[in-house]
């Protein structure tokens, strides 16, 4: 009766659990020529948590996210992922490892429909070859149906049914952000990196986005690392927060701890130098 009986990889657990260390950054230093973008930073991301990286402009947050995603290779320090030291990798290898991301400046295929954009997220999970996909025959057809079913789950999850067939270029900004999240989710990531998911949104869009981030974490058990400027959002969403300033780590802990951290307050509000 229900023709479509695909279940998303739900964790099935009744309690949202925060597990062991998923990723660990050990003494990371990143230089661009003579400029030190990141200086000797260490922190970890635990399985199932929402981890935020905050800091004033130019603090090195996006660089840090790029190190996590494997796009930048630090000159010093080690990245450990799922108990192994991670070697230098190509972007598609990172994706295969179970890391997905969204970008600060939306990076979607503007001319393609929402559905096709999200389908590209399934690319690394497709097993049939180019020719059988081009002919759309046998196994390839069955596989596409299967992937489409999962993508439809995500479309339902993020409530974007009405724009399924709309070209992305015609969508407003807030919806594009949501489509980007959908594409990242389509890769079934273990670790989801969000680079300023709320930038440029109005209050209502922000609230929607918060709900989707929390639901993703809750329903699929996805670990989430995010960079965000809106302090209210960060404090409400995250389990733990890393604070950066001038490429250094100046704080690390739960939102409450961060709120009362002197170094953090100084960095954000400025200090009077006598």
């Amino acid at each position: 009766m229900n023709a479509l009986d695909v279940t998303m990889d739900e964790t099935g657990a009744d309690e949202r659990r925060i597990g062991g260390v998923l990723m660990e950054m050990k003494n990371i230093t990143l230089r661009f020529g003579g400029v030190k973008a990141i200086t000797d930073i260490s922190f970890d991301i635990r399985e199932g948590e929402i981890r935020a990286i905050i800091g004033p402009n130019g603090a090195g947050k996006s660089s840090m996210l790029n190190v996590i995603s494997g796009f930048y290779v630090p000159q010093e320090g080690e990245v450990w992922f799922r108990g192994k030291r991670r070697p230098q990798m190509k972007p598609y290898e990172v994706a295969q490892q179970g890391i997905a991301r969204t970008f600060q400046n939306i990076a979607l295929f503007e001319g393609m429909s929402v559905l096709d954009n999200i389908m590209t997220g399934r690319l690394t999970l497709m097993k049939t070859g180019l020719w059988s996909q081009a002919l759309w025959w046998g196994r390839a057809q069955a596989e596409e149906v299967e992937h489409r079913a999962k993508v439809e789950r995500i479309i339902d999850f993020l409530e974007i049914q009405h724009i399924r067939k709309t070209p992305v270029g015609r969508l407003p900004y807030g919806l594009k952000k949501r489509v980007e999240l959908a594409r990242a989710l389509a890769t079934e990531p273990k670790l989801l990196l969000l680079d300023e998911p709320m930038a440029g949104m109005n209050v209502e869009e922000k609230e929607d986005m918060c709900r989707f981030i929390l639901d993703t974490n809750d329903e699929f058990g996805t670990t989430i690392a995010l960079i965000e400027h809106d302090m209210g959002v960060v404090m409400d969403l995250s389990d733990r927060v890393v604070v950066m300033d001038y490429g250094k780590k100046i704080g690390d802990g739960t939102p409450d701890e961060i709120r009362s951290n002197k170094a953090v307050i100084d960095a954000y509000l400025g200090v009077q130098h006598d």
Binding site: M1, L4, R153, I155, D156, Q161, R164
Partner: peptide, 13 residues
């Protein structure tokens, strides 16, 4: 319509 497909139930179902 759910997950992009029209699901049908007959009177017996």
């Amino acid at each position: 319509k759910e997950f992009g497909i029209w699901q049908v139930w007959s009177w017996a179902e």
